[in-house]
Amino acid sequence: LIVDEAINEDNSVVSLSQPKMDELQLFRGDTVLLKGKKRREAVCIVLSDDTCSDEKIRMNRVVRNNLRVRLGDVISIQPCP
């Protein structure tokens, strides 16, 4: 998924579009594992966002710094076991 700027300022939340959440079989409030660069990982709570496009994930600056990614970078997402 492509990293995009978050609207809310919550450090533990990322936003996906509802069709993408359905495709990944995620529900609102699920915890997910995000994988960024240099084997960096972060655990976040996923919320749906109608304004977010299907191929993007919204996260704020703190999460991006933790993953060592910038806007427009590609990250992977998976549900936490």
Rank of each mutant, 00 (worst) to 15 (best):
V14F: 00
P19D: 07
V74W: 08
I77H: 01
Q78V: 14
L24V: 03
A6G: 13
Q25V: 05
D4V: 08
L26F: 04
C52I: 08
K20M: 14
Q18C: 08
D30S: 05
S12E: 14
T31V: 07
D22R: 11
I7Q: 05
I57G: 00
V46R: 00
V46C: 09
L34W: 01
K20C: 08
R68T: 06
V46I: 05
D10Q: 09
I77M: 08
L67S: 00
V14A: 03
S48K: 12
R58K: 11
R61F: 06
E5Q: 07
K37Y: 12
D54P: 07
L26D: 01
V62F: 11
R70S: 14
I75C: 04
E55P: 08
V62H: 14
D54F: 07
Q18W: 05
R58I: 08
R64I: 09
L47S: 09
P79I: 05
D22A: 07
G36C: 13
N8Y: 12
A6P: 13
R61E: 09
I57S: 01
C52R: 05
P81L: 03
E9G: 09
N8T: 14
C44Y: 08
E23S: 09
D73V: 00
I2Q: 06
S12F: 10
S53A: 11
E23D: 04
R40E: 09
L71G: 13
S76F: 10
E23G: 08
C52F: 02
V69F: 02
I7E: 15
G36H: 09
I75M: 05
M59P: 00
K37S: 13
I2R: 06
L71Q: 10
M59R: 00
E23L: 06
K20A: 12
I75L: 06
N11W: 04
D54R: 05
D73Q: 12
M59K: 00
I2E: 06
R39V: 07
K38S: 08
R70I: 04
K35L: 09
K35Y: 04
L71N: 15
R68Q: 07
A6H: 12
V62G: 13
C80P: 10
N66I: 06
L24E: 02
T31I: 04
E5Y: 14
V69E: 02
V69T: 07
V3C: 05
P81S: 07
R28D: 14
L33H: 10
A6E: 07
Q78C: 07
L71C: 07
I57L: 05
K37M: 15
S15T: 12
D30L: 02
V62D: 12
G29P: 00
K38G: 13
P79R: 07
I2A: 03
K56R: 11
D22C: 08
K56M: 07
Q78I: 11
D10F: 07
I45C: 13
E23M: 15
I75Y: 00
D73A: 13
L47Q: 11
R58G: 06
N8S: 10
V14I: 14
L71S: 12
L34Y: 02
R39D: 13
I57D: 00
V46L: 05
V43P: 04
C52P: 02
N8A: 09
D49C: 02
L16C: 08
S76C: 11
L67R: 00
R39G: 13
V32F: 01
L47Y: 08
N8P: 08
I75H: 02
C44K: 14
V13W: 12
V74F: 14
G36P: 02
V3T: 03
R58Y: 08
F27Y: 07
Q78D: 15
L33F: 03
D50L: 06
P79F: 12
L47P: 01
N66S: 10
V69C: 15
R68D: 09
S15Y: 12
Q78Y: 13
V43K: 12
L34P: 00
L26R: 00
V63P: 00
V14Q: 00
N11C: 08
I2W: 04
V43C: 12
A6S: 13
N8I: 10
Q25T: 07
K20E: 02
V46G: 03
T31C: 04
L26P: 01
D54H: 09
V32P: 00
D30V: 05
R61G: 11
R68H: 12
D73F: 01
V62L: 12
I7D: 13
R70N: 07
G29W: 04
V63G: 04
K38R: 11
R39Q: 15
L24Y: 05
N66Q: 12
C80H: 09
L67G: 00
I77T: 02
S15V: 15
S12L: 11
P79E: 08
L67A: 02
N66C: 03
E5C: 11
G29A: 05
N11S: 14
E5M: 14
V63C: 13
V43D: 08
E23N: 07
F27H: 13
L47F: 14
N66F: 04
A6F: 15
V74Q: 14
G72N: 10
C52M: 11
I7L: 14
Q18V: 12
Q18P: 08
V3D: 02
D49E: 08
L67W: 00
E23W: 03
P79H: 10
K35R: 12
D30N: 05
D22E: 10
D73H: 06
L24S: 01
R70A: 14
S53F: 10
P79M: 08
R40H: 06
C80S: 15
I57W: 01
I57T: 02
N60A: 12
L34M: 09
G36I: 02
I45M: 06
E9L: 08
D54T: 15
D54Y: 11
L16T: 01
E41S: 08
T31D: 04
D4L: 05
R58T: 02
S76H: 12
T51S: 09
K56H: 05
M21H: 00
V63H: 03
N11F: 05
E23R: 08
V13I: 14
R64M: 10
S76D: 11
T51Y: 04
D4N: 03
L71I: 14
T31R: 14
G36T: 10
D30F: 02
G29V: 02
D22I: 07
N8C: 11
L16I: 12
K35N: 13
A42H: 13
E41M: 07
L1C: 07
V13P: 03
Q78A: 08
V69Y: 01
V62C: 13
T51P: 04
N66M: 10
V62N: 15
S76Y: 07
T31G: 09
G72K: 03
L47D: 09
E23A: 07
G36A: 10
N65C: 07
V43S: 09
L71R: 07
R40M: 08
C52E: 03
R40N: 08
D30C: 14
L71E: 15
E23I: 06
M59H: 00
R68M: 13
L34I: 15
D22P: 01
S48I: 13
V13R: 07
S53Y: 13
E23T: 10
C44P: 00
P19T: 11
D22S: 08
V32E: 00
T51C: 09
L24P: 02
E9M: 10
C44R: 07
V3E: 01
V46H: 02
L1Y: 02
L33D: 02
D73E: 07
N66L: 12
S76G: 11
D49H: 04
L33A: 09
K38E: 08
C44F: 08
D50V: 07
M59Q: 00
L16V: 06
K37E: 10
L34N: 01
K20I: 12
V32D: 03
I77N: 00
D54Q: 04
D50N: 07
D49K: 02
P81A: 10
V46E: 02
M21C: 03
K35I: 13
R68C: 07
A42G: 05
G29F: 06
D4F: 03
M21W: 01
C44N: 05
S48N: 14
L47M: 15
R58C: 04
S17P: 03
D30Y: 01
D54K: 15
R39H: 04
K35V: 07
G29T: 03
R64W: 02
V74R: 14
I77V: 14
E41K: 14
K37Q: 15
E23V: 06
R70M: 08
R40Y: 15
R39E: 14
E23K: 05
M59C: 09
M59E: 01
I45A: 12
R70K: 09
N60I: 02
R58W: 02
L34Q: 02
D73N: 07
M21E: 02
R68I: 02
C44M: 15
R40A: 15
L1K: 04
N65M: 09
